[in-house]
């Protein structure tokens, strides 16, 4: 029988994979992809709670998260394109002017 903990463990594993990707990818687009994995794991979590606790709050939040993710990716890809166009860089380690 599949219960709430199964979904939570799936989401934890997915989140960890996303974290690994964010830390090790150097390419900006690759980092954005890994961030999307983390968003998805959070969504699975929300939806599992919504389903097993019989509340629409999780479902409503899921859709909010999807919307915010869409906004984040739009601006993210626009930033990557702009940096690439102005400085011909895609590697995040080399875009380090704001480093203290």
């Amino acid at each position: 029988m599949i219960g709430l903990p199964h979904y939570l463990i799936l989401s934890a594993l997915l989140f960890s994979l996303g974290l690994y990707g964010v830390l090790t990818r150097r390419n900006a687009i690759g980092v954005l992809m890994a961030v999307e994995l983390m968003f998805n794991s959070v969504n699975i979590n929300l939806m599992a709670f919504s389903h097993y606790m019989m509340d629409t709050a999780g479902l409503a939040f899921c859709i909010f998260v999807i919307t915010v993710a869409a906004a984040e990716v739009t601006v993210g890809v626009a930033l990557v394109l702009s940096v690439y166009r102005n400085r011909n860089l895609i590697d995040l380690d080399q875009v380090a002017e704001l480093k203290g």
């Binding site: 934890a12 960890s16 994979l17 974290l19 690994y20």
Partner: peptide, 26 residues
């Protein structure tokens, strides 16, 4: 083709994260 960095730190952080989360859930 892509290269990567911080390999050990990445694995460490991800495994730690997974262990903490799964431990809490279980």
């Amino acid at each position: 083709k892509q290269e990567r960095n911080q390999h050990a730190a990445g694995i460490f952080a991800a495994v730690l994260m997974a262990l903490v989360l799964i431990g809490t859930i279980a």
